[in-house]
Design a protein around this nucleic acid. Structure first.
Lengths: 224, 224
DNA sequence: ACCTGAACACCGTTCAAGT
DNA sequence: ACCTGAACACCGTTCAAGT
């Protein structure tokens, strides 16, 4: 996405700040204080400039966030040794992307902005589609399979992030408890049965187990 | 969630506006103009009141959005005839929730705010957990299975909504095309192979197919 | 070409006062 | 108890001018 800094024209006023500096300072604000604190004004003062100077280096705030996601994935998404078994390759690729995104949950606001995330992740998408094809799916089925995996992964990050944010917040965390305390055992027997364990069960990280189930289901012959 | 209007005290100034009116007007703004246009100030003028009057009926804007979600599900999520087969019951329950949420995509911002959505949906959660148990899962496994389904469903809505928003926006839609035009066939052969079909493949609604795969995978004996 | 200052058109929420 | 007015502490972005 970020084009390799174009051959600089020698005419005109020399730039005081660079796109790289903008991204770097933005990254620091986001990691140290949270994405809510990243405003164009705050970023400008951090850089020692004015809000409008930023608009010469990024189109608008949304582009800045996309650049930030790109920066983060390029920085942390390294290609791992993938298993030979194609099914395991699919699982490992999805898990690698998940890990990188889970490590910077602020990205949720941006990742929802595009259906394939940053270009740095394309190699992993390739591995997933290829693994699914090697397991016997058609290329079309494999693309649909990849998308199902992406839905699942994006959803897990989104919901997990929201849950964490809620826990950080004041008392809205008690909403679930109130609901579960008022269950009608006659109408909702299963939920009543698991009510006590709900909190601990949903605190568990089950991303990988669910991912395996999904991949297995995608590869199994359909149950019509 | 919305407690059945408490027995009104007869002391004090009679209310000019009600919580119901606040929610109703908010719903109209959101459905007619989009969730971005719902601001406390705009809502107040719509009601013919002041911003601060709203704060006597809702705690803050976030609570208003949650109430709006509650209102929407109560209004549109009707209990359907569910299949007898437990596996199909799980699929049908998830699909029912998905349908209601997909019909009002603005809800995404709120649904990420809680891991179990509105109380009106509890009956469907019960059906899913119960169906999974009837298929042979333990109650604990069934809760985890429900959560996987919820991740998948929430992710599908989120990504689909983002894609639609992007399409509505100016030119950011071309980002994907640019990426796919620049693919290196040597490094990313599968993606190169499907590049032409990507747009049409991802435009297809594959929620149900992916859901079936996930449910099948959750119910199949694990592949260790 | 790059940056600045001032302004536009907004936000959510708090506080003190009125009825 | 309910509502109002004014204010606080912000936003992203545009426009016209400066170097």
């Amino acid at each position: 996405m970020s084009q390799p800094s174009a051959p600089r024209k020698t005419t005109g006023r020399p730039p005081r700040i660079s796109r790289e500096e903008v991204i770097e300072k933005a990254r620091r604000i986001v990691t140290e204080e949270g994405v809510d604190r990243l405003t164009m004004r705050r970023l400008a003062t951090e850089i020692g400039s004015t809000p409008m100077a930023l608009y010469h280096h990024v189109r608008d705030k949304e582009e800045l966030l996309v650049l930030l996601l790109d920066d983060h994935t390029a920085r942390t998404l390294h290609r791992p040794e993938l298993p030979d078994d194609p099914r395991e390759r699919v699982v490992a690729s999805a898990a690698a992307i998940h890990e990188v995104l889970a490590a910077c949950p602020w990205i949720v606001e941006v990742l929802t902005a595009d259906d394939l995330m940053s270009a740095s992740a394309l190699w992993f998408v390739e591995q997933m589609v290829d693994g699914l094809v090697e397991c016997g799916l058609t290329p079309e089925q494999a693309v649909h399979g990849y998308r199902a995996i992406w839905y699942y992964t994006a959803g897990e990050i989104t919901v997990r992030t929201a849950a964490a944010r809620r826990r950080a917040g004041d008392d809205r965390a008690t909403y679930r408890e109130r609901v579960f305390a008022d269950l009608d055992p006659g109408e909702l027997p299963r939920l009543t049965q698991v009510a006590d364990q709900w909190a601990s069960l949903t605190a568990e990280n089950t991303y990988l187990a669910g991912l395996r189930a999904l991949v297995n289901g995608l590869l199994a012959p359909g149950t019509p």
